[in-house]
C-alpha cells in the first residue's frame, strides 16, 4: 500500500482556492457526455448483475456505443470503477469545502461530514461497492494497487491532512498530524465494511459508529496516547 503523504512543515494559512476549470469545447463536451454514459451504464450493471459478471459488451450495449468506444475511454472495468471512485472523492471533498457552516466546526464534525458525503454518494451502488472492496484486495487489482489508485488515495488523504492541520495550534507538533492520515485510511476502510454489513434501519448504526469512533480516535491522537 502506498504511504500516506507526510505532514508539511508549516500549516497553510488558508486553503488555496480550487483552480478554475476552463470551459469545454463542443467536441470535449461530447466526449465527456459519452464517458458519463459509459460510467452510468457500467454502474447500473455492476449493481444489478455484479462486478465480475458484467462484460464490456454489455456495458457498450447499455450505453448505446460500440464496444471499441468503451475501450477508447477505459482500458478495463476496473478503470471505470476507479473513475467512479475519483468522482466520489471529488464530490466528498467539494461538499466539505463548499459548506460554509463547517468552517467553524470541530475536526470530528468535518471528518464526519466527509465520510457521510462519501457514503451518500456510494449508497445507490452498495452491492457494487461490496464487490469492489473484495476486488481491491486482489494482488493484481488496479483498484487497490495501481498508480491511479495510489494517486486517488493521496488526494483523499491530503485533504484529510488539511482538515487535521486546520484544527491544530500552529507550530505545535502533534501525533494527530503525523499519524492522522494513515490511521484515517485504515479507519475509512473499516467504516466501509461496517456500513456494508449494517442492517439497522436507515443504516443508523453506521452513523453512531462513525460519530463515537471519530470522537474517541481524534481525542486519542490529540492526547498523543497512540
Amino acid at each position: 500500500m502506498p504511504r500516506a503523504p507526510a505532514a508539511p512543515a508549516a500549516r497553510p494559512r488558508r486553503r488555496p482556492a480550487p483552480p478554475r476549470e476552463a470551459p469545454l469545447g463542443r467536441r470535449a463536451r461530447s466526449k465527456e457526455r459519452t464517458r458519463e454514459r459509459i460510467v452510468t451504464a457500467a454502474l447500473a450493471l455492476f449493481q444489478s448483475k455484479g462486478f465480475e459478471e458484467t462484460t464490456t459488451r454489455a456495458i457498450a450495449r447499455r450505453a448505446r456505443v460500440a464496444e471499441g468506444t468503451v475501450f477508447n475511454y477505459f482500458e478495463t472495468k476496473e478503470d471505470i470503477a476507479l473513475h467512479f471512485l475519483e468522482l466520489e472523492v471529488s464530490h466528498a471533498i467539494a461538499s466539505v469545502r463548499n459548506n460554509r457552516r463547517l468552517r467553524r466546526a470541530s475536526l470530528e464534525e468535518k471528518l464526519f461530514a466527509l465520510l457521510q458525503s462519501q457514503i451518500d454518494f456510494l449508497a445507490p451502488y452498495e452491492k457494487f461497492i461490496g464487490a469492489a472492496f473484495v476486488q481491491a484486495l486482489k494482488p493484481a487489482s488496479k483498484l487497490g494497487w495501481s498508480r491511479q489508485a495510489a494517486e486517488l488515495r493521496t488526494r483523499y488523504l491530503s485533504f484529510v491532512q488539511e482538515l487535521i492541520e486546520e484544527s491544530l495550534p500552529r507550530g505545535k507538533p502533534s501525533a494527530l498530524a503525523w499519524f492522522g492520515p494513515p490511521a484515517f485510511w485504515i479507519y475509512y476502510l473499516g467504516v466501509l465494511l461496517y456500513w456494508l454489513h449494517d442492517s439497522s434501519p436507515g443504516k443508523q448504526n453506521t452513523l453512531a459508529f462513525i460519530d463515537r469512533s471519530l470522537k474517541l480516535g481524534v481525542a486519542l491522537l490529540r492526547k498523543g496516547v497512540v
Partner: peptide, 9 residues
C-alpha cells in the same frame, strides 16, 4: 449530536 450528524439522521 453535532449539526452534521443531526442532518444525516
Amino acid at each position: 449530536m453535532h449539526a452534521s450528524l443531526a442532518r444525516a439522521r
